[in-house]
Design a protein around this nucleic acid. Sequence first.
DNA 1: CATAATACTTCGCCTGTCAAGGTATATTTT
DNA 2: AAAATATACCTTGACAGGCGAAGTATTATG
Lengths: 112, 112
Amino acid sequence: MSIASDLIRGNTDTIILGHLLNGDSYGYKINKSILQKTDGLYELKEATLYSAFKRLEESGLISSYWGDEATGARRRYYTVTPAGRQAYFNMKTDWQNAKEIIDLLIEEDAGL
Amino acid sequence: MSIASDLIRGNTDTIILGHLLNGDSYGYKINKSILQKTDGLYELKEATLYSAFKRLEESGLISSYWGDEATGARRRYYTVTPAGRQAYFNMKTDWQNAKEIIDLLIEEDAGL
DNA sequence: CATAATACTTCGCCTGTCAAGGTATATTTT
DNA sequence: AAAATATACCTTGACAGGCGAAGTATTATG
């Protein structure tokens, strides 16, 4: 029971921003956290995740820096910018609205 | 207050099938009906609508026939096939599941 | 008679997802 | 010690769906 690409689409950015609002984090961890939250039902594909980071950073919604771990693989941490914070709340509202409209339109018993 | 393309994506087929389950209809009318249902907030773009018809017909979920109106522009009517009916219910379930997961994941207060 | 409304179609662009492949380090298993 | 697994990141190219734009044709309206 996964989510079709076309249904998740448009929500990855919001998901990532939402995660980062809890504090800076990095790709691998965010994805594991998603897995955990969904009880193993869902995780972002790596390519999707990293292309989302790139997109978000290019549009100024997040910024990044390299962690200084003494050991283990290097990690690139991300922070939400003020613009990103604002964008997150807008995206959430968009999602709430979209959900309502889609729910209304999907129903087979038209009020028509 | 429209819906972003990426949020509607993956739901157009379901919306169309849902509409057609009320009885055969045609593109223009379905779109007007969507406009009405949403109080003018939303309608599918023509190109989106007609490419969805094509996709749905090619995958055997709907079939079409020309109306025999004596007057006015010709209309191509669509019918949901049994496979289409089944697909509709599956899509609706997928949507319900996706909604829950997305709702869970976009929240900023991680249970993490 | 011009404009709008009805009705459908096609082309090509854009964007986001993803499969596949690659790099590098640390830990655990055999 | 070698192999396998886990951690961690990155890139490329393909694919699919939404959509802007443009076109065709008929009927109604002002």
